[in-house]
Design a protein around this nucleic acid. Structure first.
Lengths: 222, 222
DNA sequence: AAATGTTTTAATCAAATGTTTGAATATGCC
DNA sequence: GGCATATTCAAACATTTGATTAAAACATTT
């Protein structure tokens, strides 16, 4: 059974199209046409419908992302200083987004789309996976600030870091036109990860100093 | 003429729906229903179709954004140091994205959607407005680095800054669930702008030092 | 009040879309 | 070979969608 691998072809074609055009702008006819002209019925036969095919892909995104994050985390645990851990976290995130092949790039784009416009299914996996993972990373960020850093400072620092990491992916269609000289991400993602690390570490330290000063002033005044 | 303001109602309803669900997931029936139950024909009558209504909205986005950027730029020119100019640029961008009312927030969301998935019309305005504007900002960023900073460093610095600024907007649907304690943007955008400024200035200086060291080492070795 | 131009309404069209059906074909197994 | 299962196919179905039409309602002017 399963000689010609139609299911896989449908799956791959769908990943590509959903990445390019999003869920509602993609038609099942498009998908089947791209999958070496598979029959229109294939989507329903193998996946039970367009929505379920999409959810199936989202599961792959979550599984793949979780797997890579797990790997990054294991490497992080081997490192001693929180600085090295942060560097590894950024590197791991960048690799997850930009370090795979074309297929991974498409999954990443679907992930980014969901970040901006989540489906109920995606929100569920966020609740299950992203939220607890975020807690861990926030602990790491807290270590890099100062003893007694405000929750707000921790949250902001993490947001600024993640914002830098994800920006290239979500804005790429426009970014690559505004900066046509920018090389493709798969060539520079690791170098860029280092850049973000240096940039963010300095930024966090500056914010730490500022908040501590502000706290001291407040204390003096009282 | 124009007694009950149906055209405006249609326009407002369309902005809201396009912001929430995007272009292809929004139907003209949705729009008319939300516009106080206007007749189905209204969209075609007043705007000539769904696509043209959308382009009309994009024009508003571009005009409004351009207007605000212009205002921010005029204020920037009054300032002396490049540091103050950068601070003002960030503040202006944040105000543009988060500092209006609900309507502005919806326009912003449409803008972010286009950033991730641009329509031809949007790419055209990018080519006409965003590209030259970006050139100016890059000059500003260059001043804040060091004499002879590489083009790559300038570009990366700007990207990291813009990434932080736009992150909240595009990831808000998920972000607000991962960080439920985060207050709404319209309450904190100005404070956050200052945070991004401090963070980024320190980051840029760290990157400057690193690149200069690297250049010096390269020079020594030769 | 008649005429005119504008806005609103309801009904309808053709194309597109997700899904279903039932027959045809291929495949694996005894 | 023959049976059972799995897959593929073309056709059709029921909705949905954006667009069109023509007439009614309304306001404004003459």
């Amino acid at each position: 059974m399963e000689a010609s691998g139609t299911k896989e072809k449908i799956f791959m074609a769908a990943v590509g199209l959903f990445a390019e055009k999003g869920f509602s702008a993609t038609t099942v006819r498009d998908i089947c046409r791209r999958a070496e002209g598979s029959n229109l019925n294939a989507v329903n036969y193998y996946f039970g419908g367009k929505r379920q095919l999409y959810n199936n892909i989202l599961e792959t995104v979550a599984a793949e992302g979780g797997r890579r994050m797990q790997a990054a985390k294991m490497q992080m645990d081997l490192l001693r200083t929180p600085e090295e851990k942060l560097r590894r976290f950024i590197l791991g995130y960048m690799r997850m987004l930009y370090g795979g092949g074309e297929f991974s790039e498409q999954l990443c784009r679907i992930y980014i789309r969901e970040l901006a416009d989540p489906s109920p299914f995606f929100l569920e996996t966020v609740q299950r996976h992203t939220v607890p993972q975020t807690q861990e990373i926030m602990e790491l960020v807290r270590e890099l600030l100062y003893e007694g850093a405000s929750e707000e400072l921790v949250r902001n620092s993490l947001s600024l870091i993640v914002g830098q990491i994800t920006y290239y992916s979500f804005s790429w269609p426009v970014y690559s036109r505004v900066h046509p000289e920018q090389p493709r991400m798969d060539f520079v993602w690791d170098k860029l990860a280092e850049t973000i690390y240096v940039f963010s570490l300095a930024g966090m330290r500056a914010l730490s100093v500022k908040e501590q000063n502000s706290n001291a002033n407040r204390g003096n005044r009282q």
